[in-house]
Every structure is written in structure tokens, then in C-alpha cells.
Design a binder for these strands. Structure first.
Lengths: 218, 218
DNA sequence: GCCGTCCTTACCGAACCCGAACACACGCCT
DNA sequence: AGGCGTGTGTTCGGGTTCGGTAAGGACGGC
């Protein structure tokens, strides 16, 4: 469970009530930290304040969903920011609470969401004989399981997510390594080679000379 | 099964999906008819719309519970009627869905409730040779009983509940320990080792390097 | 005070990532 | 056609991170 809230008093309140229900709670105080935390911690759900300094909640949510991350999100909006609520649901929030809210209500909302998403189908990325299970973090080629290292997995995920568009090495670095600027090393190439080896003869990863890589047309 | 809903289109939708699951479905379009139907038909469960004309859903539910009738009730509330949901649960609803909801979700919710309050609500988690009895807090592997300490039990329960999805150490901490934020200790690893030892050679707990653990198989 | 359970720490082996080095492919130019 | 430069494929060893495990101490129940 991740709570994103810049007011320390409110954050602590939320943390206490969620913890009492048995959730392990992490805190983040701004949008970038939140995105990073979701990536690293893979929380079961996120309570996201809309009125953050700098990168606001809506922006964070948009970034998450754009990255194909469907971690359940409860938005916390101020009473008069109705626009944000509507916008939030459109952008992919699972529910929202209006400040000021009772902690009990927040807890109830979070639990409801978790219940709702139980038994939800797994997130899968498929392309030809390749099937990547994001929830199990497992890969199958022609139905046979294939082991992947963490970076190989992230790389393949980044490639499959683009679904045919050309991806530069810099973009792949950013996607699979978190941010790290691509400073002219060959790291990406090496891992692509590894991936191709593991994917076998039907490997759909094509080289676009001078630009980067892309998936073969389905 | 009784569906109480004043919008004929929605009512019909619900009826069709519930019927497909083998439930005999009756309809009622207002609160008084609903109360009457519950008394006469004694349905196994009720799907109850909150926004009824005249006597509303909350009132119907209150009347039922006041008459010591504990027929399982799933409330259907509009998204912005947050008060009703909290109120409904306090008044004795067993669960609720938020409009607009998918019919499949409704069915799942109803089934969950029936399962929960089935004559023998003996909750079992099974996976391969492993069988975990949540009510007796007992574990059997290949039919042979195995003793578990409380933390080991919680840990295994958390793993089995996710059914193959990757679970981070932070999540396991949250699930099995109640709250404790995972601050970089190796506690989880140690207990996983214990578990593996007790589960024996056919142990389905796999390590996902850099992320966490998951169950083997499907 | 003994015993079981739990948490921490430390150590070791293994997996992994990176960067360099070398070999190869492609395309352009003459 | 052949040569050359640039960009890419692939291999390999060093250094680092990560997970398994064993041992020791803290805490609480009996």
C-alpha cells in the first residue's frame, strides 16, 4: 500500500488507519517519488492526493496508466475540485474520496477496491508465440516456460508495450532501467542479444539500423 | 434469488446473468413489494437497489434486519451515494456493488456471499500437494499433517492467496505481519526458507530474483 | 528458568550486469 | 566490385548485488 500525500499530518493519519487494517504502508510526498515507489514496491494499491506540489496526482495517474500499470488507485480530492474527480475516473482511477474524509471511509474504499479486483484476469502481453505474464513475471514461448532475468524481463516488457513502433536505445534504457540516461554504452544491445537467444528462432525483435529496435509485424 | 430494481433494463440484465449461473430469479420494483417477496419466497439472497422510488433500499434493509431476517443482501448503489454504502454495511448489508457495475462482478459477489455463509464455510487453499485449512489453521502435504508456526502459516496463506502472482517482500510483510514496513531486513527470506524446508521437495515456492516470490505452476 | 518462536546479522555462493574487445554486416563511395 | 567506415552481434571476465542459510540473542509463555 502506497500513500502519496504532501501534508505530513494527513499522511500520518492515513498511514495509521491503513496499518491498523493490516496494510504495510509506504509514504511518498511528491509525484516523482510516487512513480518511483510504485515501480519498485509494486504496492497492492495507491492512495493518491490530487493536490501535490510539482507533478500533481492526475499527472501521476496518467503516467502510470500510460506505462500500462494498473495498480488500483484511490484519488483524494478537495471538495471543490469536482473537475479532478471526473477527470480522474476517466484517466483510470478506481475510486475517489473527497477531502475532508473519515479515515474509516478511506479504509472501506480501499478494501472494496481490493475485493473488486480479486479474481481479475491477469495482465498479459502477447505477440505471436510470445506470451509475457506481467503478474507472474513469467514468459512462455510456444507454451514452454522460459526463465528471464529482471532486466531481460523489463526490456521485453518495454518492447511488447510499444507493439510495433520503433524504440530507440535511450527509450529502452528509460523504460527498463527506471531512468538512467543512455550514455553511449552497448548495454542495451547485449541484453537484446540475450533476449533473442532465449526467445529462440521465432524471435520477433528486429533491428532498425541507426535507430533502435522494433517488434516484427504480427 | 430476488432482484429489487426499478429500472426494467437493469433488472433484466441482472436477471439474465444470475439465471445463467443457475439461480431462479424473481423481480420486485419497489420497497414494499420487496419486503413482501422476501417473506413469501424466502430467497437465498437479495440484490437490492438503493435508489428505489418510495421506500428506499436502506429502509428495506433496516426493516428486514429489524424483523430478524438475515437473508444475505448485496446493495447496488450509485457511485456518488457514498453515504449509502457505509450506512448500508452498518445496517447489515453483506456486500455492495457500485453502479455502473459489470454483471459478472455482481454474480461473483453473490456467489462469494453464498460461499461465505454456506453451511460449512470451511475455507481451503489448495495448490498441488499443499492443502491449507484456514479454519483449523492446519497444513497437509501429500495428505500428511505438517506443523506450522503462526508466522509461517500467515506467510503461506499470503502466498497461496495470490495464486501465482509475484508477491514482493514488502507485500508479504504487510500480509503476514499485519503492518511492519519492509525496511531492508532479511526476515521474509528466513521464514520462506523455513517454509520450504517444511513443505519438502515438492515445494511450489519460487524465487523471482530482484522482485519477490511466487507459486509455481499454472 | 527452560523452551519455542521470532528477528537479526554475517557469511558464502550464485546469479547477474556491465563494459570492453573483437567479429561481422550493412551501406556508401570511389 | 572492392574497400572502408559505421553500426551491430556476440563473447567473456570482473565486480557487484542478491538470496540461502546458519548461528546468536531477544522476547514471551509455561
Amino acid at each position: 500500500m502506497l500513500v502519496v500525500e504532501d501534508d505530513p499530518a494527513i499522511a500520518e493519519l492515513e498511514r495509521r488507519f491503513l496499518a491498523r487494517e493490516g496494510f504495510g504502508v509506504h509514504l511518498a510526498t511528491d509525484g516523482d517519488a510516487a512513480l518511483d515507489a510504485v515501480r519498485r514496491l509494486r504496492p497492492v494499491a495507491v492512495v493518491l492526493d490530487v493536490g501535490l506540489p510539482g507533478r500533481d496526482g492526475i499527472s501521476v495517474l496518467t503516467a502510470l496508466r500510460a506505462a500500462d500499470d494498473w495498480t488500483p488507485v484511490v484519488l483524494a480530492t478537495a471538495r471543490d475540485e469536482e473537475v479532478d474527480r471526473v477527470l480522474g475516473l476517466e484517466v483510470g482511477a478506481d475510486d475517489y474520496v473527497t477531502k475532508p474524509f473519515s479515515p474509516r471511509e478511506l479504509v472501506a474504499r480501499v478494501k472494496a477496491i481490493l475485493r473488486r479486483q480479486d479474481g481479475r484476469p491477469r495482465r498479459l502481453l502477447e505477440h505471436g508465440p510470445v506470451r509475457l505474464d506481467l503478474d507472474r513475471r513469467a514468459l512462455a514461448v510456444d507454451g514452454a516456460a522460459v526463465e528471464l532475468t529482471p532486466t531481460e524481463f523489463n526490456l521485453l516488457e518495454a518492447l511488447l508495450a510499444t507493439d510495433g513502433r520503433v524504440v530507440t536505445r535511450a527509450e529502452l534504457m528509460a523504460e527498463a532501467w527506471g531512468q538512467a540516461d543512455y550514455s553511449g554504452t552497448r548495454t542495451v544491445d547485449v541484453h537484446v542479444a540475450q533476449l533473442r537467444a532465449k526467445l529462440g528462432p521465432g524471435c520477433p525483435i528486429e533491428t532498425v539500423r541507426g535507430v533502435g529496435y522494433r517488434l516484427a509485424g504480427s
